[in-house]
Design a protein around this nucleic acid. Structure first.
Lengths: 352, 352
DNA sequence: TTGAAAGCGCTAACAA
DNA sequence: TTGTTAGCGCTTTCAA
């Protein structure tokens, strides 16, 4: 084995003619050091290229870390169930650092439940927060008012320009829409209409979906005529009705469903009507989506990678808390194209 | 901060009425423990669900690790240059564990240089090896004969069924070929011929390319007529000539180049001849490939993710060496489809 | 076969 | 403002 011939704090102390305590104070800016001594130590520090042993640091400051997660209830939605698997796995990945994760789930249909979950999270004084800010207004309120202790937080899934988390993790939604447009038009179609379906719990929070829409429009217009439809996710029968309405259009060549949710409803209708002439593009490796992808009813899925999202979120936060590592301000995942022929390779890989 | 209320070795010792030294001996099977005591300790161990603090373990046994990498010269080939960026990054990622990496490059055109590189690597008694086994015969010889000290090793890129590395990292080549087939046939073409081009340094080692070929055939035959061409990568002019020969076929609707290498040559010819009727599919985010992808000459790239490959290789090996973590026998990466519209999102992401 | 004790490099409380 | 020292949990050497 390699012997550890690194420069240690002790060496720095000797070189600077001071004690380790003083060096430690300089390194951590704990004050109470004369300017003169401070400068000398800093000089030695940079000359030797001192790098702390993070193992020893973590061990010495007998800290573990406690992270609170605020996200939609995984039982309510398969997308968030996938996201939750990332939480589970990060617990394993970071097990050696005695990491504790407290989950606080909220109801996708109920914005007040978000407040509750968030306040609960805070009340347990976590060292950091990972949050999926589904409800724009409530999130804003929470992070600008409640979080006065300045607990570091990471935001996942939805970008919120008014906030400054230590890191945002998600995807470029505009580009995602462009990609969807490209995927619809590959090889060309003879039909010239394309419909965008925004199907979700609360239509108020659909701003980010409009970014996807714009991307698609910029690719397909004016060659294609685009129509956009906001559909509130409630009664499946009601959704069906609205979709069937849209399908009356004989000239419809493609449908883009902007969220993973309820894509399978659309697929089911298309399949039942035998409309294999319509290209269908949507999001995420949900079970039902995959089965329609396999049967060719859905042509492509774009993977938003919810598992990797939470995994990376916890990872970044842990690195920040434990090792003071610098994080990317934005971690934008690639837009993964899933087709019938590569879906298994995604399912089989450790992170998907 | 959370206090670390874990069970420590000390606690185990107290519960079992022995000393920490003895507990340690049992945990690490360092022998010299009476059967009776051993059983008692093991009982306590499992009852308490003891989990060692890996930080302390690593710190206590003042080991660093030294990993030797055996791979093609990054200056010779852009694919391997990308792979090399993974090495660089893993050095950062693992910097806290005092990881040392020694690179041993070999010449893609010269199998004897592989032997040399491999022996060199071994002579420095590394704790583990990461190897890209381009030369089948030589690799087999090396790992079955030279590596008698049983230094743990990870194999990247090319699967070799006769060997048992602690982990293999790569992709499913057969499935990769199937995907290529699907990508060629999306939307349908009126032309019914497809050509597969295997372009590489040494044709002898093309076994794994045949797996890709088989995948493509299984998707496209008998609807399409497939022709396969082995082209030795030497003089670019010579390559051109052979490719132009193939392009004479008026009925050619698609080309699949099975390696990242020289794909741009094919693209350049297609572009010059104005043959935009021919679908072109190939591998990897090499600079030239990307520019042809952007211009629509190349329709899709499949990403073999060389950077992530080496990054994961070093990561697995480090986890094994440092933390005795269990590794997946095979880590098969997803087959990433790169199009004009998602390429930037891959380039912008931390690992691509 | 066992136990005691001195590290590993760093932190943080306490003294000076 | 500075130095000293006792940990953190584990490994490993030495002595018993």
């Amino acid at each position: 084995m390699t012997d550890n011939n690194n420069i240690r704090i002790k060496d720095i102390a000797k070189l600077a003619g001071v004690s380790v305590g003083t060096v430690d104070r300089v390194i951590h800016k704990r004050g109470k050091v004369s300017e003169e001594v401070k400068e000398k130590i800093e000089k030695v520090l940079s000359e030797t290229g001192y790098k702390p042993n993070l193992l020893a640091r973590t061990l010495g400051s007998k800290k573990g870390i406690k992270i609170a997660v605020i996200m939609p209830n995984p039982e309510q939605d398969e997308y968030w169930a996938l996201a939750f698997t990332g939480i589970t796995q990060s617990l394993e990945d970071w097990s050696q650092y005695n990491l504790q994760i407290d989950n606080h789930f909220f109801d996708l249909f109920d914005s007040s439940s978000f407040r509750e979950a968030a306040e609960n999270a805070l009340s347990q004084t976590p060292d950091g927060l990972v949050c999926a800010p589904i409800f724009h207004k409530e999130t804003l309120e929470f992070f600008s008012q409640q979080n006065q202790d300045n607990i570091p937080y990471v935001l996942c899934n939805t970008f919120i320009k008014e906030l400054s988390p230590i890191s945002f993790i998600g995807q470029d939604l505009y580009q995602s829409g462009r990609l969807a447009g490209e995927l619809i038009s590959i090889g060309g179609t003879d039909k010239s209409h394309v419909a965008i379906l925004h199907i979700q719990e609360n239509i108020e929070n659909s701003m980010h979906l409009k970014a996807k829409e714009q991307g698609l429009r910029d690719i397909l217009e004016p060659k294609y005529e685009i129509s956009s439809h906001d559909i509130k996710k409630m009664d499946p029968a009601l959704i069906r009705e609205q979709i069937e309405q849209i399908l009356i259009d004989e000239n419809l060549g493609g449908i883009f469903v902007s969220t993973s949710s309820a894509l399978h409803e659309v697929a089911s209708i298309l399949e039942n009507m035998g409309r294999s002439d319509i290209r269908l593009i949507g999001y995420d490796l949900l079970e039902k989506n995959l089965s329609y992808l396999k049967r060719g009813v859905i042509n492509f899925l774009i993977n938003q990678n919810p598992k990797r999202m939470t995994l990376t979120g916890i990872g970044h936060l842990s690195n920040h808390l434990l090792f003071q590592k610098e994080l990317p301000e934005n971690e934008l995942f690639p837009l993964e194209i899933i087709s019938r022929e590569n879906m298994e390779t995604y399912l089989n890989s450790r992170i998907h």
